[in-house]
Design a protein around this nucleic acid. Structure first.
Length: 639
DNA sequence: GGCAGCCGCGCG
DNA sequence: AAAGCGCGCGGCTGCC
């Protein structure tokens, strides 16, 4: 049998290539070694080597007996599922991964010993497995399995995940096959991953392949848990594990998106793009593609005068930079306005246009994005397919995320959570005092920089202080601060002023300064940093190695991420009995869609969960002004 | 035609 | 001494 998936030099998949999810990451996975010529074992060989027997169950009598046997097994049971596309969506790229477009074909379970069970869910009802769902289970990329099980009417209450365990240990997301190779010495075949799971009859190869994954997760759980305990990673793993159910439900819920409004908006973008393209043509001529930074750079090279070119910033490959802040700086040029207008419209159309709306699910009419636990170096979630963590703040766009008839959005966010976390982990008394008294830290910083009393701080001074707070928190230098203040806050700050602002900042927040020095010192010598929840970021595993600014950022961003993770299971619990759905999570913000009558109680529930999430990580935190929840017809209205 | 790196840009 | 961080996505470009 040929093995096309193994013939390439990189074991790397694009979305939609496969029908199960044991690659782990849906889009791309880490692959440390090139295994071009490595031998692969058929599942049959491993099964026989391990002394296992496969039991394929197609009748409810056999299945009940098997469930009874499994209930005597060792917990957590190893679990895996295979899914089949629904007929109507045979041609849909993602159908096999998406619960609304597919169904569970097989459920594989292993509880130690000789027998591994494969339940054929074309022949059986999921209810027959009901005692199992209350028991501890483990799967690889368990959120995937949980989503399908929930959709099929089963609710697994306690489920571990080998992918998240490995993430706690390494910071990365590995496929099951990679973990199997590393921890079991198994060279697992992937041939059957793309096979036809829709067929009424499955081959022995398919059944063996399916069965083996449940054995792999069972065995690996024990090995990984041992390592997690030894390395004091229980907390970071548990934070992720306990967030799984809320994430699975959120992905299954999806978020409502106003397709008609989106199409009207796209028409305005098209117009804007067309108009600015015509203006650009007058400046650039017909041979420059405005979508090409390289071509714009060449054009600038030949059309700019010497003085301008002398101080024009370059990219790392020696191109003249053409980004917004570079174009906006210095004396005005006839190119800048039309080019920026063009870029703005082009960005909307490319990233937030047709392709975005194509993610609307044909069954639910909603967007079901993928939220990846452990998807970032700091412990934040990442989101894709589409990324609904970065929709433009423009009201016209944000309001497309709305509530269907009879419903309303409840949106809650943490106020300045990273600054709060910085105050708490550094123990800086001045910052802590400000938060304890419900003071505005930006104002406090502004007063310190300007050397005036709090009451005399002007709005401009406060705006500048925001840049100072967010920049200096992560080790920004004077030059960077001046640039950052201009670009992100519209504040003109000379380098001299930036130096003075830094001095005033660190004099006021001397505890933070000490923490930064100490954190950087430890991180540099150990080549790693650790968050409060115990997530280790190992710089020696990263291409860039130790980086001062990353070392300072990680415990703060990571600490805030852990607060959110701690919040999610609490939120799920407090939403019980309410007609409320979690539909989006954006780092420090939670979006829910609720029946109108449940809005007040949902606001209370989310505020309670968020405050308790903060206190779970930081028991001494001030909760004054920590959380704000609002209700409105759409996402724009609530901001 | 596929892929990877670069650039730029949307968000927190 | 100096150093903002974290993502995902799309277009272009050069390479295979």
């Amino acid at each position: 049998m040929t093995e096309p998936e193994e013939s390439g030099s990189k074991i790397k998949y694009r979305a939609g290539c496969r029908r199960d999810k044991n690659s782990g990451a849906q889009f791309e996975l880490f692959d440390e070694n090139d295994r071009t010529n490595e031998k692969i074992d058929a599942a049959k060989e491993i099964i026989s080597r391990e002394g296992l027997t496969l039991h394929y169950l197609k009748s409810s009598g056999e299945a009940s007996a098997a469930v009874e046997e499994l209930m005597k097994g060792k917990f957590p049971l190893g679990l895996d599922i295979e899914t089949a596309k629904l007929n109507e969506f045979r041609d849909h790229k993602q159908a096999g991964l998406e619960p609304h477009l597919s169904c569970i074909r097989l459920i594989q379970l292993y509880g130690g010993g000789e027998k591994v069970y494969v339940f054929d869910m074309f022949a059986l009802n999921v209810k027959i497995l009901f005692p199992i769902w209350d028991k501890p289970l483990v799967a690889h990329n368990a959120v995937f399995d949980v989503k399908h099980l929930l959709h099929a009417g089963a609710k697994p209450h306690q489920i571990g995940c080998t992918m998240l365990m490995a993430n706690a240990l390494t910071g990365k997301l590995f496929s099951l096959a990679d973990l199997g190779r590393e921890h079991l010495g198994w060279r697992m075949s992937k041939t059957q991953q793309i096979s036809d799971w829709d067929s009424p009859t499955l081959t022995q190869d398919q059944l063996e392949y399916a069965a083996l994954d449940s054995v792999a997760v069972y065995k690996m759980f024990r090995i990984l848990m041992d390592q997690i305990a030894k390395n004091k990673l229980i907390q970071v793993y548990t934070l992720m594990r306990d967030a799984q159910l809320a994430i699975a439900k959120m992905e299954l819920n999806g978020i409502y998106f106003d397709l008609n409004g989106h199409q009207r908006l796209m028409a305005t973008w098209h117009q804007a793009k067309k108009r600015s393209a015509e203006e650009l043509l007058q400046v650039l001529g017909p041979h420059v593609n405005p979508d090409s930074s390289k071509q714009i750079s060449s054009w600038l090279q030949t059309n700019l005068d010497k003085e301008a070119l002398n101080e024009w910033p370059m990219t790392k490959t020696g191109q003249l930079k053409t980004d917004r802040s570079t174009l906006a700086r210095g004396p005005h040029h006839p190119l800048t306005t039309p080019l920026q207008k063009y870029k703005d419209a082009a960005k909307m159309l490319s990233t937030f246009g047709t392709g975005y709306a194509e993610h609307i699910n044909p069954v639910t009419g909603r967007i079901h994005a993928y939220f990846r636990l452990g998807g970032t170096a700091t412990g934040r979630l990442s989101c894709s397919g589409p990324n609904i963590q970065n929709p433009p703040r423009d009201k016209q766009f944000r309001k497309l995320f709305s509530a269907p008839a009879g419903r309303i959005l409840v949106v809650a966010d943490y106020g300045q959570i990273e600054l709060r976390v910085a105050a708490l982990i550094s123990g800086d008394e001045s910052m802590l005092e400000a938060y304890a008294n419900g003071e505005d830290l930006h104002r406090k910083t502004a007063a310190a920089i300007a050397g005036v009393p709090l009451k005399e701080v002007t709005p401009e001074q406060r705006q500048a202080a925001k840049a100072v707070n967010f920049g200096l928190l992560y080790g920004q230098g004077p030059k960077g601060l001046a640039r950052y203040a201009k670009t992100n806050y519209g504040v003109d700050m000379s380098e001299r002023e930036a130096v003075e602002a830094r001095e005033a900042f660190f004099q006021t927040y001397s505890g933070l300064k000490r923490w930064q020095q100490e954190t950087a010192r430890k991180a540099e010598s150990s080549k790693s940093v650790v968050t409060l929840g115990g997530r280790v970021r190992d710089f020696s595993r990263e291409a860039r190695g130790y980086q001062y600014t990353e070392a300072l950022n990680t415990p703060i961003q990571g600490g805030a991420a852990e607060v959110l993770l701690a919040t999610l299971p609490k939120l799920d619990k407090y939403l019980e009995g309410l007609d409320a759905k979690l539909v989006n999570v954006v780092h420090d913000e939670i979006v829910l869609e609720v029946a109108k009558r449940d809005a007040p109680r949902t606001k209370q529930a989310v505020e309670k969960a968020m405050i308790e999430g903060m206190l779970a990580m930081f028991p001494n935190a001030s909760t004054v002004g920590l959380v704000e929840a609002k209700a409105g017809a759409n996402w724009a209205e609530v901001k």
